[in-house]
Amino acid sequence: MSGKAYIREMPKTTWWLSHSRYRRYVAREVTCIPIGIYTAVLIWGLMRLSQGAAAWEGFIEALNSPLSILFHLVAFVFAVVHTISWFNVTPSAMRVQIGEDFAPGAVIIGAHYTGWVVVSLIVLFMAGV
């Protein structure tokens, strides 16, 4: 072989813009940022709670601010994206073989969604809906 093989470099920071599949992947990965920030909000809440009733009232007031509502709306959407993307890949990550056959993917995914509904209802019940 004469001459030299040509190597196409991938753009290190913008590669994921090139294909809808990669954009979907990045949308899934960045869900970690709102989930991380939300967990920090929870810890902040614990701190205000430990400081007594007045501090807690302040925290609740902050939760009612437009900025907080906007953040929680965005975080909610991202959290749901995370949930859907997580559940939808469960059949290929953990196959369940019963006898010869594998449990159908729809059954495994369906079981996760059912569990999600049950868990959410329990939390809502505890919160007092």
Partner: peptide
């Protein structure tokens, strides 16, 4: 996946 959406909703 199971808990964060409903927790964000409640709090």
């Amino acid at each position: 996946a199971f808990l964060t959406p409903v927790m964000i909703f409640v709090t």
